[in-house]
Amino acid sequence: DEVTIHLGDKTIRVDGLDKELLEILKELARRGADEEELRKEIERWER
């Protein structure tokens, strides 16, 4: 499953996201997290 996250004018595509992680990323994005913060969160989950 590829998920596309839209952040204002930026788009991040991620393969096979965990549903819980997806919810966390959506919440972070709502709070104004930037792409770098979201990537760090994704990397934390992948470990």
Rank of each mutant, 00 (worst) to 15 (best):
W45D: 00
E36I: 10
E41S: 04
T11F: 08
L22C: 03
D1C: 14
K10Y: 15
L38S: 00
E27L: 15
R44S: 08
E35Y: 14
E23H: 09
W45A: 01
I42K: 02
G32M: 01
L25E: 00
D1K: 10
L7W: 07
L7D: 03
L17N: 04
D18N: 08
D18A: 14
E2V: 13
E20V: 13
I12L: 09
L22F: 10
E37L: 07
G32K: 02
E27Y: 11
D1F: 11
D34S: 15
K19R: 10
E43F: 04
D18S: 14
K19H: 10
W45F: 05
R13L: 12
K40N: 10
I5V: 06
R30N: 05
R44A: 11
E41G: 01
R44N: 10
E46L: 15
D34K: 13
E20L: 12
E20N: 10
D15C: 15
R31T: 05
I42H: 01
K19D: 09
L38F: 08
K19I: 10
E36T: 10
D9E: 08
R44E: 07
L17F: 09
I24M: 09
E41R: 05
E27K: 09
R30F: 09
R39D: 02
I12R: 01
I24L: 10
K19N: 10
E36H: 12
G16C: 06
G8D: 07
L21D: 00
T4S: 10
E2S: 14
E2Y: 14
K40Y: 07
K19M: 09
D34N: 14
L28F: 05
D9P: 06
E20W: 11
L17I: 13
A29E: 03
I12Q: 02
E23N: 10
V14E: 03
A29R: 13
T4E: 13
I24V: 10
D18K: 08
L7E: 03
L17P: 02
I5E: 04
L28S: 01
D34C: 03
D9L: 06
I5S: 04
E46K: 10
R47G: 11
I42E: 01
E2H: 13
I12N: 02
D1L: 12
K10H: 11
L22R: 09
R47P: 05
E2D: 11
K26W: 15
G16L: 12
R47I: 12
R13W: 12
I5G: 03
E46C: 15
D18Y: 05
